[in-house]
């Protein structure tokens, strides 16, 4: 964990209400896909926890939906603005369990962490299949980026305006996979939990105080005991989850 200044070097809208920011700074403490960073913004008391979408050298990419004052400020930030950022937060996904054909399931704001995960898996010679779920066509993002990794990408939209009509679970029926990784809204995670037959990992979201395990503001119950989403998570194994 490190608390350092990052500079916004790129900031753009990539889909309805969805923004991508590239930040430049010390990324050395980001060690696993599925981790998050916690960003301090001027005028707001608490930091904003945002999942890591990609890291390359000193460049950190994040993608977020504008849902409140914090993400509004982030989306409006000019390049050159500096954000004090805690990096290396959370446990991240465990790549060692993936098997040869893991399945990656991202829904909405849960899509970004799947990208670095996919990249790392490909680097290890794995061939993940990717399902990306959105509400409607204008919300879809990063399909091409996943395809550029040479992966099979299935997009679902709830209204059928793009790709398969329905939820991510509607695209899973004929897929063969060895393990799965998922991130998205809780109803989606629950549906994935019920649909999947292999083991897998879920990334959860919760309102956080500190983001590094001090305040106990985001604790949940698991079969392995109480866990702080920020520190012991955000990734939990399928076997430990209590809904």
């Amino acid at each position: 964990m490190k608390d350092t200044q990052f500079t916004v070097v790129e900031n753009k809208r990539i889909a309805h209400n969805t923004y991508l920011s590239v930040l430049e700074g010390d990324t050395s403490d980001i060690t696993a896909p599925g981790q998050f960073v916690n960003i301090k913004l001027d005028g707001l008391y608490l930091r904003r926890p945002i999942s890591v979408c990609d890291v390359e050298g000193n460049k950190l990419t994040i993608i977020y939906k504008v849902v409140g004052v914090g993400t509004e400020k982030m989306a409006a930030a000019p390049t050159g603005e500096k954000w004090l950022t805690l990096t290396g937060l959370g446990n991240g996904y465990d790549l060692s369990k993936s098997g040869d054909r893991p399945l990656l399931i991202g829904g909405g704001a849960g899509v970004p962490p799947m990208y670095l995960l996919a990249r790392e898996l490909v680097k290890e010679g794995k061939r993940p299949t990717v399902i990306l779920g959105f509400g409607k066509a204008d919300e879809v993002f990063f399909k091409e980026e996943f395809e550029a990794l040479g992966l099979q990408v299935i997009v679902t939209t709830q209204d059928g305006s793009y790709g398969v009509k329905g939820f991510v679970t509607d695209a899973m029926d004929d897929l063969q996979y060895t393990y799965f990784y998922t991130c998205g809204p809780e109803p989606m995670l629950k549906a994935v939990y019920n649909k999947t037959e292999t083991s897998g990992e879920f990334s959860f979201e919760e309102r956080m105080g500190c983001g590094f395990g001090a305040c106990m503001g985001c604790t949940c119950k698991t079969k392995y005991g109480n866990k702080r989403i920020c520190r012991d998570g955000p990734v939990l194994e399928k076997e430990e989850i209590i809904w």
Partner: peptide
Amino acid sequence: FGNPCPRIAECD
């Protein structure tokens, strides 16, 4: 265990 989540809310 404490209270259910959410346990945190930001204020001015």
